[in-house]
Design a binder for these strands. Structure first.
Lengths: 349, 349
DNA sequence: GTATCTTACGTAATCGTTTACGTAAGGAAA
DNA sequence: TTTCCTTACGTAAACGATTACGTAAGATAC
């Protein structure tokens, strides 16, 4: 509607003063008279003056934008990570730009490229399962853009990292199954490439050994997508053998949900015949039948922490101070439901 | 690491030509000699020149950023809308900035404010349930920032709008229940404030009347949050009466999942005693027991369309051409599962 | 040979704001 | 009275790229 937005120049001209004086007034700089300041504020208010952020960003070479790349938004875990990121970012005056890689390395590359064009001040990324080469991230760093990795991290580069204690989570989950008297515990693991499922496997193994149980090779299955379909098929496969497991610990919740379906279809009882345990505590895990016991990750808090680390790093770089990369390991917690504990209460939790 | 990023000036000086010549070369402008152009490209490549987008955005007063505000990321529907948005935005060279209102009007205001500071080129918004006043959006429009409303829209302002045919979806869902021979159909609706649940109620009512069935007032229940907990409680309430419904059509999937739980807890059979139908086809709906029939919304496509509309509007405004606001109504489709059809197959879908 | 056109550049201005620096006016200190 | 300091401004430069405009050199036309 209006011909153009109000500029400092418009205010300056109308008051008969110079542009820097208007700037000083509006920014509460010391070198400005009380009277002038008052007049400037009043006129700015009257004209609905709004700073032109393009000019300011250009001057400061700073966008106040944090880029976030995650494999999939629809995952409950990532949705919550993002919520944590957005909430915390706002407190520090940052906006959040989002991109999803759909677990594709090429797509991840594109995201980084797009973000680079958008002049992000920092990048928070959870790597796609197919990302091996991290040169695109090193390149960002070399352009002075801080990178913080979260959950799916790479050991091939130095950066701040936030992971949760997958090992301990899996260890305690397994220990819980053992405490129920289970002795032949199966494990369905992932592709072992993203660091996470490998750690979960190691935690499982460690608990088994620690408690003097046997590690049955035929009870350890690997599947690539750790999806519900794969969990279903893999479990059917497990149940086709003559010696059945009395518990299954799955590296992800979807896998576990598939396992539950397979066990039910086989006419076996959960948890009496076979107890089932998942990992990540997806929203849907509380509503399957029976509700699934799982390992809960501090998703929201991880997102919050990511913003804390990245804003700190941005500030350090801006001040030309040395940056020390930390790896934060966050604790998981067990969420126990009917798939291991059996039926107890009637009301939904 | 490097002292500063490479600028046109650096290239110009090294080649002994002027800055505009370098600019013309890199932008493939006509007024430049072949030889010079080649030299510029070669040196730019060698020095890893990258345009400074801050300067370009400043010059053009354009950010290539689309702001997106939705109530909740964790909702399956919105996750998919966002996916559609991000995918399509990338094709047009736009980045997506995300904010969630958590169904709070104040938070929505903050989001708009934050986005305004970030100089978004356009806003795609799905209103929070508590948003009545839309002055914050009108204000954006008056600053020449296009607004596209999606799903939760307001009739209080003119803008492009994308909704799905809630009426027809509910109509067909109800008709499906009727086709199963159900005669006493209950409906659990929402707060009726967001346009969506009201339309669903109207579609339900229309189908009932059209087929000559009775509309039992005691079978129509309202709940505010349309959550699983409320669905559970409301259904228990319904089942406490002596005359039971033989089907329940819920305005949302979580409500329907709560209803399923309540019906199961009461020892009744689904769908023989009571069939259950939801709306939105959440991911979790396919894994509850029994799997829930629902009305699927074209979430991804809605997001895609939103980008199409907003980029068109941005371009029109930029060219000072008149903008015509359209409302796009997208079709829903029925997803029929065991909660209405009964058990048929064993393999998970 | 003079007039005109085209090609390939350079010069200068511009986008809006901030900041380093200079300076006039007024007061305080000697 | 002279010197110095403080206050409150104005001037100019800068951030990096684009673009309108001007122009010299060479080609073409008459």
């Amino acid at each position: 509607m209006s011909k153009h937005n109000i500029r400092l120049k418009d205010i300056a001209e109308e008051l008969g003063i110079s542009i820097p004086s208007v700037s000083r007034a509006l920014n509460n700089k010391p070198d400005i008279g009380k009277e002038t300041k008052k007049k400037v504020f009043e006129l700015a208010e009257k004209l609905h003056y709004q700073r032109n952020q393009f000019a300011i960003n250009f001057k400061n070479q700073q966008s106040f934008i944090i880029g976030v790349i995650i494999p999939q938004i629809v995952h409950h875990f990532f949705s919550n990570v993002i919520s944590g990121i957005i909430n915390e970012a706002e407190k520090s005056g940052y906006s959040v730009m989002l991109y999803q890689s759909n677990e594709s390395y090429e797509s991840e590359l594109k995201g980084v490229e797009t973000f680079q064009r958008s002049m992000i001040d920092g990048l928070i990324i959870s790597l796609s399962d197919n990302t091996v080469n991290v040169d695109h991230l090193k390149n960002l760093q070399s352009h002075n853009v801080p990178v913080v990795m979260i959950d799916k991290v790479s050991h091939k580069m130095e950066s701040a990292k936030i992971i949760c204690d997958d090992f301990k989570g899996a260890y305690y989950a397994t220990e819980h199954l053992i405490s129920l008297g289970k002795k032949k515990i199966a494990h369905i693991t992932g592709s072992l490439e993203p660091y996470t499922t490998k750690e979960r496997y190691k935690g499982f193994e460690s608990a088994i050994r620690k408690h003097g149980l046997s590690l049955y090779p035929h009870l350890i299955k690997k599947c690539n997508l750790v999806s519900r379909e794969e969990g279903y098929a893999t479990t059917l496969n497990l149940l086709a053998k003559k010696e059945l497991p009395d518990a299954i610990f799955c590296a992800t919740d979807p896998t576990a949900i598939g396992a539950i379906q397979a066990i039910k279809d086989k006419g076996l009882k959960i948890p009496e015949d076979i107890a089932v345990m998942g990992f990540s505590d997806w929203k849907m895990s509380s509503i399957v039948d029976p509700p699934l016991s799982s390992v809960s990750q501090p998703d929201f808090e991880m997102g919050r922490k990511a913003i804390e680390l990245i804003t700190k790093e941005i500030q350090l770089k801006r001040d030309n101070k040395p940056v020390k990369y930390e790896t934060h390991i966050m604790e998981t917690s067990l969420v126990l439901r009917e798939s291991t504990l059996g039926k107890k209460v009637k009301v939904p939790n």
